[in-house]
C-alpha cells in the first residue's frame, strides 16, 4: 500500500441530523503520524464530524479521504476495515459483556483478528487495570475503567488512525493524567490521532496542531509553539464578552 502524506483529508464536509446540517462545509487534514486536537463549544459539530467520518450518520456532501483513498461512500464497516477507528464519547460499550469478551470481540474484522494477540497484549500492558478485571461486566465498570476499555476496544480494531471523542469526559484529574500518559504512549508509535477535547491543558499537552470548531466550521487553526496564549483560547470559547 502506498504511503500517502495525509492520513485524513476532509474537504467541505456537510452533515447533520434529520433535515438540518450541523456541519456547514468543514475542511481539515491530519498528516501521517500527526496528532490533532479539535476543540470548541459544545453543539458546534465536533462529535457530528467524527460521526460523519465513521458513518454513524451519513454525510450530506463533501469529500473524505483516508490514506489517499476516498471513503465518503464507504460503509461503517468498511471504515473500520480500513483502520480508521472512532472511539465515541461516553461509550456504554456492551453492558452485559465481560472485559475480555469485549476486547476479543472488538477484533472483529479480518485484519484485526490477524493482529488480535499482539494488540491484546499491548492493551493489557497499557491499561493493567483491565487485565485485573478481565471477568467483570462492562456495566459494573467505573467511568475511568470504561474509558480505558473504550480506548482498548479501539486499539483492538487494529487502528491505522484513532479518533478519540472526549476521552477524559467526567474523569478526576488523577485519572486524566493516567489517560493522557496512555494516549501519549499510543502516539509515540506514530499513530495519527484526532482528539476532541474540552480540557485545553490536556489537549495542548498531547497534540501537534489544533483546530477551533465554531458553528459547524473550522474557525481557526493553531500550531503548537505559536504564540497563542491561554487567554486567547478562552476568548475563542466565550466570544467577545469574555475578552472585554
Amino acid at each position: 500500500m502506498s504511503e500517502a502524506a495525509l492520513a485524513l483529508d476532509i474537504r467541505d464536509l456537510r452533515a447533520g441530523y434529520d433535515s438540518y446540517d450541523v456541519l456547514h462545509g468543514m475542511s481539515l487534514h491530519v498528516a501521517n503520524g500527526e496528532r490533532i486536537g479539535l476543540f470548541g463549544p459544545n453543539g458546534h459539530g465536533k462529535t457530528t464530524l467524527l460521526n460523519a467520518i465513521s458513518k454513524v450518520i451519513r454525510p450530506n456532501g463533501g469529500s473524505v479521504s483516508f490514506m489517499g483513498e476516498p471513503i465518503a461512500a464507504v460503509s461503517a464497516r468498511g471504515i473500520v476495515e480500513r483502520g480508521l477507528i472512532h472511539v465515541p464519547q461516553a461509550n456504554r460499550l456492551f453492558p452485559d459483556m465481560e472485559i475480555m469478551e469485549t476486547l476479543e470481540l472488538a477484533a472483529f474484522t479480518r485484519r484485526a483478528r490477524a493482529e488480535r494477540k499482539t494488540n491484546l497484549d499491548y492493551v493489557l500492558k497499557l491499561f493493567p487495570r483491565l487485565a485485573e478485571r478481565r471477568r467483570q461486566q462492562c456495566k459494573t465498570l467505573s467511568g475511568g475503567e470504561r474509558q480505558m476499555l473504550s480506548i482498548g476496544v479501539g486499539l483492538m480494531c487494529a487502528p491505522r488512525m484513532l479518533m478519540l471523542d472526549e476521552p477524559t469526559l467526567g474523569l478526576s484529574p488523577k485519572l486524566k493524567e493516567e489517560l493522557a500518559a496512555a494516549i501519549a504512549g499510543i502516539g509515540t508509535r506514530g499513530m495519527p490521532m484526532l482528539i476532541v477535547e474540552q480540557d485545553i491543558a490536556f489537549v495542548l499537552s498531547l497534540v501537534d496542531r489544533m483546530y477551533f470548531v465554531d458553528h459547524g466550521e473550522i474557525a481557526r487553526e493553531i500550531h503548537r509553539g505559536s504564540d497563542v496564549d491561554h487567554q486567547e483560547i478562552m476568548d475563542m470559547y466565550f466570544g467577545e464578552r469574555a475578552a472585554s
Binding site: 461503517a76 464497516r77 477507528i85 465515541p88 456492551f94 459483556m97 476479543e104 470481540l105 472488538a106 472483529f108
Partner: peptide
C-alpha cells in the same frame, strides 16, 4: 462464537457495534 458475540453486542449497543466493524 464470533457471530454469536456480535449478535449480543448489536443487541446491547448497536452504535458501538457498528464502530468495531460489525455489519
Amino acid at each position: 462464537s464470533r457471530i454469536g458475540r456480535g449478535i449480543r453486542a448489536v443487541g446491547q449497543n448497536p452504535n458501538a457495534a457498528k464502530l468495531i466493524g460489525i455489519d
